[in-house]
């Protein structure tokens, strides 16, 4: 086992707004850890801070026992953290395969063919559409492509931001099945979700974020049963 990611007491500001107020948590190797919470609670901000797109004023982020809180965003990817941003940010004008190739920008050359094969194995739907222009894919397929692209860089830790956003329930099920498969295949996953029920059902451990603070934590099961979480996020 061992800890992959440790977030220690980070504070993030958007100008004068104190968005993250001292969040600490950790992710162990092989786990699915989820951050749940309402809109604007600071979930995505936390992911952005880990991937270096935002900076924490205080505190520290350690990845594989190395501080990354001052590492540039593009270097964090090659260290092994892959971030799938919210809203399926794919390169609309490129084909599916070109999108995946872009994901391998920092990958060692001898790993690329292997990674691509792995992505196609996990997402057979993408394999059927290799030369299709990415912008013409359906929402679910675009989400798969964004995840596949993130996997091309051989990540130790995969961070998913709202993978279920805007998808039909059947597709949400599919996406979560894929998340579990990826996890079984050895990728550690940090998942940010509004769909608390789905997130808690796959998560080993979970943290509830409220207005920039962690208000609850526990295993996925514990939280799914907890009264507070049920009232606030699971609809009674």
């Amino acid at each position: 086992m061992g800890t992959v990611l440790t977030v220690k007491n980070i504070n993030v500001y958007y100008g004068a707004i104190h968005a993250i107020k001292g969040i600490s948590f950790d992710v162990n190797r092989g786990e699915i850890v989820t951050l749940i919470g309402a809109n604007g609670a600071g979930k995505s901000t936390t992911l952005h801070t880990i991937s270096g797109l935002l900076r924490s004023k205080t505190g520290d982020i350690e990845f594989l026992e190395e501080s990354i809180s001052h590492t540039a965003a593009h270097k964090i990817v090659s260290k092994g953290i892959s971030h799938v941003p919210e809203g399926r940010r794919i390169f609309q004008g490129m084909t599916v395969e070109e999108n995946l190739q872009m994901g391998a920008f920092v990958t060692k050359q001898d790993r690329i063919a292997h990674n691509l094969e792995y992505v196609y194995e996990q997402f057979p739907r993408l394999k059927e559409r290799t030369s299709q222009i990415a912008g013409t894919l359906s929402g679910g397929e675009q989400q798969m492509l964004a995840m596949g692209r993130a996997l091309m860089s051989d990540p130790e830790l995969l961070m998913l931001d709202e993978p279920s956003m805007g998808l039909a329930p059947i597709l949400v099920d599919q996406i979560f099945e894929i998340i579990e498969n990826l996890n079984k295949a050895g990728t550690t996953i940090l998942l940010v979700e509004q769909n608390a029920q789905m997130a808690l059902s796959v998560a080993d451990r979970a943290y509830v974020i409220e207005t920039g603070r962690i208000s609850l934590s526990g295993t996925g099961e514990e939280l799914a049963k907890s009264d507070e979480v049920r009232k606030a996020y699971l609809g009674g």
Partner: peptide, 11 residues
């Protein structure tokens, strides 16, 4: 084309 996606793949 997509700055956030480009940053997220390490450019």
């Amino acid at each position: 084309d997509n700055r956030i996606a480009a940053e997220s793949i390490g450019l």
